[in-house]
């Protein structure tokens, strides 16, 4: 009897509670406030970089939140001080080449894992995954020595070579290939397709989504890479834009306007990619993060 009453009262209680929950109006205002503050924290430095880069030289130290007068002098100064266009081109070439090669080797290796059982396959798969655990600083000296032996110090080739394959690409692609319906592969094989054709004509077109998000991820992280170029670069002409900024900072110290102009130029390509493909960029980072 009493339980029946309670059961009957439940919807009413729930309605009541939901009404109390309509304090959610205030709650979500507070939620917005928190998110706006976080957004400011995240975005302001980038905004300030662009604003500073656009101020005329005599107004660098102004603290107005937007530039009172616009000038491109800082950009001209930065372009004169370091070969930034050359470095941007170098960075672009390296990023594109690394992205393409890493996708290739990733597709090939992932295909081997997804398609066949072979001796030691589990062991090799684990071996690929475990490379993730080797910090670059642990292998940097042997890597450096190898590049020196090959006579490739201060060259773009050396910046690309260690990135020929990555655990991330192999594992992500292997995962999505494994979820690929086996019947389709079997059918293609019955039609006489060789494994090579199955990979490029059946699998790859169907993995477009994963490939695209991997490409974004590899491109951005190669573009932003700093440590390996730092070890190898001797001259600005043979280096990437990240090193250019570092060189600029050491040589020109506190020339804030031009430094911000150089930084803006170095970030612009990535920011443009981000603005155009925002949703895909965020998704590809999250996919790799969630695993």
């Amino acid at each position: 009897m009493t339980t029946e009453v309670i059961e009957a009262a439940r919807p009413a209680v729930r309605r009541l509670r939901r009404k109390a929950g309509e304090g959610i109006g205030l709650n979500s205002a507070a939620g917005h406030l928190v998110m706006v503050l976080l957004s400011l924290f995240c975005l302001f430095p980038v905004y300030w970089m662009v604003v500073t880069s656009l101020r005329p030289a005599n107004a660098i130290f102004e603290t107005s939140l937007w530039p009172t007068a616009l000038s491109l002098d800082n950009y001209a100064y930065a372009l004169n001080a370091i070969p930034i266009v050359r470095m941007l081109l170098n960075t672009l070439v390296i990023s594109v080449v690394v992205t393409v090669i890493q996708l290739m080797t990733g597709l090939l290796a992932a295909y081997a894992f997804a398609r066949w059982r072979f001796p030691f396959d589990k062991l090799i798969y684990a071996g690929v995954a475990l490379t993730w655990l080797v910090p670059f600083q642990v292998v940097m000296i042997p890597n450096y020595l190898l590049v020196a032996q090959l006579g490739l110090l201060d060259s773009l080739t050396a910046l690309i070579l260690p990135h020929f394959a990555s655990a991330l690409a192999i594992l992500l692609l292997a995962q999505s290939m494994r979820s690929f319906p086996r019947e389709v592969i079997e059918a293609a094989r019955m039609d006489g397709a060789r494994s090579w054709r199955i990979l490029w004509e059946v699998m790859t077109p169907n993995l477009r989504g994963t490939i695209a998000s991997l490409a974004i991820l590899i491109f951005i992280s190669t573009w932003n890479e700093y440590f390996w170029p730092l070890l190898l670069s001797r001259t600005a002409e043979n280096s990437v834009v990240q090193i250019g900024i570092q060189m600029f900072m050491t040589s020109e110290g506190n020339a804030w306007g031009p430094l911000m102009a150089a930084s803006t130029m170095a970030s612009l390509p990535i920011l443009v990619v981000y603005i155009v493909l925002q949703r895909q960029v965020v998704q590809s980072f999250m996919k790799s993060g969630i695993r």
Binding site: M35, L38, S39, C42, L43, P45, V46, W48, M49, T52, I60, F61, T63, I220, W223, N224, Y226, Q242, I245, Q246, M249, N254, W256, L259, M260, A262, S263, A266, S267, I270, L271, Y274, Q278, V281, V282, F285
Partner: peptide, 30 residues
């Protein structure tokens, strides 16, 4: 919000370092 708070993730670490050095400058930094 998601689009905004993700921006630092794609900014190059060197660029972030340069910008923060400017923001934190003892004399004129914001």
């Amino acid at each position: 919000y998601r689009a905004i708070i993700f921006v630092p993730m794609i900014i190059a670490p060197v660029v972030a370092a340069a910008v923060w050095r400017w923001l934190l400058d003892p004399g004129y930094g914001m």
